[in-house]
Nucleic acid binder design. Structure first.
Length: 327
DNA sequence: ATGGTTTTTACTGCGTC
DNA sequence: GACGCGGTAAAAACCAT
């Protein structure tokens, strides 16, 4: 299997992205704290992102603070930013234009019939543009969310791409009504991570998402079914590198753990059991076999699995190992 | 909803440092 | 005595039906 930690993903740029990059001419000469790549300012999203690994360094660079200097607390209240507060409840954060329905002018006088007709036409067109845009904006927001969560979880660029594709498909197939953008975005990311062989558990997703676990799971099942995504159960081995590195264990342990898992797989011991549990148990067992002992509780900590499960699995793994030697 | 399976929780006993 | 570990029973979560 390819080592996911060292692989460099070549990035396929969508039209939108290339466009956005051309726009941001002012390139800062800072480097990414994570991979040392170039940082680019994406003015459209108000973010500073790494070109190589996609890490979002800064988000929401709009200054929400007071607009002018204030000299005492009374003035501070008065001089805070002007305008309606933004809200996430609307796709455009409530910043788009709305034309009132009363046919009155700014002074409350009724309009002439000619003016009324004009306003009616304007309303119609305004509405048309707004809704035509709404899908685009919906998409933008969702993609922003996906990006945010992906970098919080340390997922590579290609996973984001996949997640975006899944989300776009969901949008096109009208799977959104009745479901939150957040939820679908999270579910897309979850699916993408699994597809890419760098799975993250539902719990991990829940930590970075604004949506609760049940909804993510429900939405995930739904879009998988509707879009006929074929996602096989996560391979336990895909968790191994993460666990070993979180625990500061050597390559040797990682290799050993994989070996144990391979064995178990061949004997079909693993079916029906949680992949995370298997992986955790394999790491624990491997750490014993290589004299780099870690405690069960440490493993259970990084794997988010109970010690009991680790115990059960690792007995099974060792049994499988013995049987394999006998063959 | 239901039943079967897996995981978690909580508790207990044992050996070691 | 605290800690790591093993085991157990009952509760909870999960999944397919």
């Amino acid at each position: 299997m390819t080592d996911t930690t060292t692989r460099r993903y070549t990035r396929e740029r969508t039209d939108e992205e290339t466009e956005a990059e051309e726009e941001s001419t002012a390139e800062e000469h800072a480097v990414c704290p994570e991979c040392g790549g170039n940082l680019a300012t994406d003015t459209e999203h108000g973010e500073t992102v790494c070109e190589d690994c996609g890490l979002v360094v800064e988000e929401d660079e709009i200054d929400p603070g007071p607009e002018w200097r204030a000299f005492d607390s009374r003035e501070k209240d008065e001089k805070s930013r002007v305008g309606a507060p933004t809200t996430n409840m609307m796709h455009d954060k409530g910043l788009s234009t709305n034309i009132g329905w009363q046919d009155k002018d700014a002074y409350g006088n009724t309009l002439s019939s000619r003016q009324r007709e004009k306003m009616q036409r304007l309303r119609t067109w305004n509405e048309r543009f707004r809704t035509r845009d709404s899908k685009e904006r919906n998409l933008k927001q969702a993609l922003g969310e996906i990006d945010r969560m992906a970098s919080a979880l340390g997922l590579p660029e290609n996973v984001r791409e996949t997640a975006s594709v899944i989300y776009r498909r969901a949008l096109e197939e009208d799977l959104l009504p009745g479901r939150s953008i957040e939820g679908v975005a999270t579910a897309s990311l979850y699916a993408a991570a699994r597809k890419a062989g760098t799975p993250r558990s539902l719990d991990e997703l829940t930590k970075v998402s604004r949506v609760d676990k049940d909804e993510i799971a429900r939405t995930y099942r739904y879009i998988v079914r509707q879009l006929n995504l074929e996602i096989q159960p996560a391979d336990p081995e895909s968790y191994v590198p993460r666990f070993t590195s979180d625990l500061g264990l050597s390559e040797e342990v990682e290799r050993r753990a994989r070996q144990l898992l391979d064995n178990a797989k061949q004997q079909g011991v693993h079916s029906g059991k949680s992949p995370v549990g298997l992986a955790a148990a394999a790491v624990y067992a491997a750490s014993l076999l290589t004299n780099e002992k870690v405690t069960q509780s440490e493993v259970s900590e990084v794997a988010n699995i109970s010690e009991v499960t680790i115990r059960n699995r690792y007995h099974e793994l060792l049994e499988a190992e013995e049987n394999a030697v006998g063959l």
